[in-house]
């Protein structure tokens, strides 16, 4: 593992290295170098199994974190690559050419987070949310409860009491 991290550190200047466990390390890579790094890891370092990719919304920093987790089935190692992209007009280079299933992930990210992957097959087709016209729902600023209250109907007649308020009212 150490050698692998050293190798990608030299070549791609990855930072924020966290050895989460013996066999999984998280690294941060610049947006522009990320796909090259992933390609390098797949082609030259044996990280043939693509575990997942997903996004994390750091709305307070105005950033999306994209996480790609790659696995080396022979050496039984995982490396997770984080890269940060701007939330404004979020776009990322597509990685669909490396693994077949990547386009599905990218399609989902487009729909759920609004991150575009130009060139990724069917990336603009709706994946789960047919006919959705609100903001991408997995963004932090999408309020699930508000949405549910607006869209569905609460059971009428429900009301609750806060014990301390109720006691203050009844005991003074």
């Amino acid at each position: 593992m150490e050698n692998i991290i050293k190798d990608i550190q030299n070549r791609f200047e990855v930072s924020d290295i966290v050895n989460q466990r013996d066999n999984i390390t998280f690294v941060t890579c610049e947006k522009e170098k990320t796909i090259a790094l992933i390609t390098h890891m797949k082609k030259n370092l044996g990280f043939k199994h693509f575990v997942l990719m997903t996004a994390v919304d750091w709305i307070e920093d105005g950033l999306f974190q994209l996480t790609y987790i790659l696995n080396n089935p022979k050496k039984k190692l995982d490396v997770a690559i984080r890269t940060f992209i701007s939330r404004e007009n979020a776009t990322m280079e597509t990685a669909h050419k490396l693994w077949k299933q990547v386009s599905t992930y990218q399609r989902e990210l487009k729909e759920m987070f609004g991150i575009d992957f130009p060139g990724s097959p069917r990336v603009n087709e709706s994946f789960i949310l047919e006919g959705w016209n609100d903001i991408p729902p997995y963004r932090r600023d999408f309020q699930t409860k508000e949405y549910a209250e607006k869209t569905y109907f609460p059971r009428p007649g429900r009301k609750t009491n806060d014990p301390s308020e109720y006691m203050k009212k009844n005991m003074s």
């Binding site: 009301k159 609750t160 009491n161 806060d162 014990p163 109720y166 006691m167 009844n170 005991m171």
Partner: peptide, 12 residues
């Protein structure tokens, strides 16, 4: 779950 007043149980 809602917390509601129940007859026979006074605040104390």
């Amino acid at each position: 779950i809602d917390l509601v007043a129940v007859k026979g149980y006074e605040t104390k």
